[in-house]
Design a protein around this nucleic acid. Structure first.
Lengths: 360, 360
DNA sequence: CTGAAAGCGCTTACAG
DNA sequence: CTGAAAGCGCTTACAG
């Protein structure tokens, strides 16, 4: 058997040194080592040094699993974050916010993407619970809370929802004021003189999309404007799907004079379409959620930015407060919106007959 | 004391049901429950049903910590990902790739952002190791491997580096061909007739930035072109810093006729600057890494896209292979680059004397 | 200041 | 097919 200088080989099972190994090495009882590791005091300096030295030499790292086993209720310092897709910058910014707060407390974050699949969500809940996370932050896949998650909430596991709000009202949620933001965007377009505005949104089965559509309708109604059914389009089409759809929609003679796009992928796709059609200086456009380069394109896109990192921080804060028993309210944190005027949303309404007659 | 119907209150410690609780409930020995939980068989259907029923009623979930304690070498089904910032879409896409592969194996991913701080990196390594992760995927903060991470590698913990490569060559890395990609970008500009090209890069202390600068120089040298020192600018300035810097740099009379921006924040900042100066149709521009809306702005930005999700998948694959003892090579996976011509990189060189004399 | 005993929730041998 | 014993790595009482 060849000598292996690069650590244990494949066949030798990798065994980490334990408290007992350190104790043997230092020539003390393993309880003494435990005291040093936990900084409990009551150990002579001499022994303490000897133990510290052995820990260093053997590369001992306490096993947090074993550590918290004695009292099952003890916290593991790990929380779980269940979301649809971490690759979406909006959600990864939320994750970053969660990580900010967790890091301050020495806690760690487990993540899992569901792609909107409720079965995957349940599976992740079970996996997280098996690892005894101290709490769960969830972007729910469906409007109803999945049974396994509901069971955990009932059991007393701290759970905070972000971005989306499940139908059960007894629940803690941190999210943007989707409805208010959409109203703001729509009113902005109305104020620029638009009467015929379309709303392109993510699938309305998603809470935020539904809320934003409601906000759009409210603002229109408040201004005494009708919303024909085909002026609200929703669906989960992705950037390229929305580009194609918007291109076709806005090429029609009866196109609207302004568009409110209610989600970032929709905004990007629609911006593509407007440029493709050469209508980017003709049709006004306000988007929900900010996008890279939104202020470089011509005209720069007027948006309702969200603060995803803040959402994550607030959610984590509430989760830890609940885990500590400090925050016992159920209830919501709703972050208000502002509008960032950049140009695309300030295009005024053209002669309303121009589009209707199909003239260029 | 008021009756609490919503689960345990704050004072009652939340105790999850254990194997023993289930056994008592079902009226069997706890070993029988263990058999049912693990699907070991050798349990009569009648008992099995009774146990399953109790598990359901009590909401029992096995404790994975206790489960793997018996054999310390057993896998925990958890891996760690240490990176600079999950809010950067490039890294969150890598995380998604890792999650894809982990999910297939029923494993979970712990993440932690370092913001480039080596101390935080060490701290995260320790936290992850305490939780006995089966392996670590790391975007290293510094060129050298931090001592705590090195100790783990020596111990035999599977570690795979992504995106950046530490100086120690004995290490497993999955990354883009930074140098080759930069050469490709630069050659593309040279082929469009440019002789005077600037390179704006992330701080050169970062491996990828250094490599991309090398690629730039190589392509220039291969074409017989000189690279004056002030034609290579590097630093960690963020989007707005780069916008300001590039605006000042490109406003000068002796500006280059083309720019290669070696990182996504640099690309965004420089695109801003070019538009601000009205030079977006004058100065050619190629960026490393793709950006939202890059093909909507005028002209669309020519880029060398990376495949971050693929990088994550490859890294996780190698990590699990190593953890399983299948992959025992040290070595690198280097993903090659292609160029995506969109317009900004195909602007040809203006009369070379025009810029030099400061004429408009 | 130091240590031997019991136990956390589970699995792995070993009996019946 | 079912169960009682020992032990994983550690902490929490309890002795000296």
């Amino acid at each position: 058997m060849p000598t292996d200088t690069h650590g244990p080989g494949v066949d030798e099972p990798i065994r980490r040194p334990t408290l007992r190994d350190v104790a043997d090495h230092a020539g003390v009882s393993f309880k003494t080592v435990s005291r040093v590791v936990n900084g409990e005091g009551g150990v002579s300096i001499e022994l303490s040094d000897r133990v510290a030295n052995s820990i260093e030499q053997l590369g001992y790292r306490p096993d947090s699993r074993a550590r918290h086993l004695r009292h099952a209720a003890a916290q593991t310092g790990t929380i779980g974050f269940i979301l649809s897709d971490v690759a979406n910058p909006f959600f990864s910014a939320i994750l970053r916010g969660i990580d900010d707060v967790a890091g301050e407390r020495g806690a760690l974050v487990l993540t899992g993407s569901t792609d909107g699949d409720p079965d995957r969500e349940s599976q992740l809940v079970d996996s997280f619970v098996s690892r005894r996370v101290d709490g769960l932050i969830v972007v729910p896949t469906a409007r109803g809370i999945s049974p396994s998650l509901l069971a955990e909430i009932r059991r007393g596991t701290p759970v905070v929802f972000v971005d989306l709000e499940p139908d059960d009202g007894e629940v803690v949620t941190v999210r943007t004021d989707h409805r208010g933001g959409a109203e703001l965007a729509t009113r902005h377009l109305i104020d620029a003189g638009h009467r015929d505005i379309a709303c392109f949104a993510d699938d309305r089965s998603i809470f935020s999309a539904a809320e934003r559509i409601v906000g759009f309708r409210r603002a229109m109604t408040a201004a005494g404007l009708a919303v024909p059914p085909d002026r609200v389009v929703d669906g989960d089409f992705g950037v390229s799907g929305w580009r194609d759809l918007a291109t076709e929609y806005l090429a029609r003679a009866d196109r609207p004079t302004a568009v409110f796009t209610a989600q970032n992928f929709v905004t990007i796709g629609t911006a593509h379409a407007l440029h493709q059609l050469g209508l980017h200086h003709t049709i006004a456009h306000v988007g929900f959620d900010d996008v890279d380069l939104a202020d470089v394109i011509d005209p720069p896109i007027t948006v309702i930015p969200q603060q995803p990192r803040l959402l994550g921080q607030l959610a984590a804060q509430r989760l830890f407060d609940r885990a500590d028993g400090v925050d016992t309210d159920s209830g919501r944190n709703i972050v208000p919106c502002e509008l960032l005027a950049r140009g695309s949303g300030e295009i005024t309404a053209a002669d309303p007959t121009a589009g209707k007659t199909g003239r260029r």
